[in-house]
Amino acid sequence: MIQLIEPYTEDKIRALKMGDMVHLSGLVYTGRDAVHKFLHEGGKPPVDLQNQIIYHCGPVVIKEKGKWVVKAAGPTTSIREEPYQGHLIEKFTIRAVIGKGGMGPKTLEACKKVGCVYLHAIGGAAQVLAECVTDVLGVSLEEFGSPEAIWAFRVKNFPAVVTMDAHGNSLHAAVLELSRERLKLLV
């Protein structure tokens, strides 16, 4: 198990390899469909994204006794952000993207160029991952609706697998190719 701890430097990110299992500790910003479209169209980010991590997540956050409490916080499907992600990684020097299902060639290219990885969280594991959120530091762009807002979370030992590294390797592309080859033997 590799510990990935803030600050997220380019060296730490480039040292990660496809297939590495990591425990992440530090700051992450949630952002999904509305946020990506907004930033891609030139919207000004309400938080500084340089050397930060974007988490494709629409959490369930409830206010209890005046304090935000994260009730569920698993990843959402990342491929929907493929039209925007590469551009945003380059524009803001984003160091990691957390999500599920993997992303495509544009994102992989940007990861290589900038020094960024794709961390695959376990889809559906909302409770295990909510337990890893130790603090809610704030929320912005709440007008997009609670799941679509940018939530600033501090996480500890957040489990993920590096499925796209900063060296042009994608586990998703590899598994797709393997499964297509195997299908030929079955039909």
Binding site: M21, C57, G58, P59, V60, K71, A72, A73, G74, T76, I122, G123, G124, A125, A126, Q127, V128, A130, E131, P147, P159, V161
Partner: peptide
Amino acid sequence: YAMNIIQSNIDMAKLKSAPLCQD
């Protein structure tokens, strides 16, 4: 690794009476 986390998540959601998946 994924299957282990999935199983922990199933147990934890039941214990906490909280959504298994955020979606």
